[in-house]
Amino acid sequence: MAIGKVRTGLYGVIAEFTSPAELTVAAEAARDAGYTEMDAFSPFPIHGLHETVGMKSAGMSSLSAITLAGGIIGGIAGFFMCWYANVISYPLNIGGKPLNSWPAWIPITFECTILLASFAAVFGMLALNGLPMPYHPVFNVPRFDQASRDKFFLVIQARDPKFDFDGVWKFLEALHPREVVDVPW
């Protein structure tokens, strides 16, 4: 059963490395060679590698903005809920205090702020990363299960404007990887 279009053909060419330093050097070489559509895979985060493989991260990241928006919405909604319930919908005189006794609502406003900001941070991260995505072409690489253990991968995608199969293959071979393989869709 296929949902949508079934892609065929080549996704890209992938090279396997054995250390984070090798991967970093290889990614920098690929960037300097003018490749733009690539990605690196590692068993743990490597500082600055996302910029080398073509992700821009100047200024406030979109994830921070999403989280901030979630927090602001949560805070306003939390306060509005308390205010609406205790002032408009169901006013009760408690010890002669004013109905709009807002200091008593600070804890709930705060908790709602944190709750929605956290949801925004987690689901925003997943959405921006395009997860969940159970199938991805790199999983076709036989040794890719090592990417979650101790191996490091660099893929140059076929949609890269500079992509030509033999040229990319030779370029990756020259970086002294453990092996180079093609990645079918």
Partner: peptide, 9 residues
């Protein structure tokens, strides 16, 4: 899948 872009976010 441990993508560098994913790790960053």
């Amino acid at each position: 899948r441990g993508s560098a872009k994913h790790w960053f976010r």
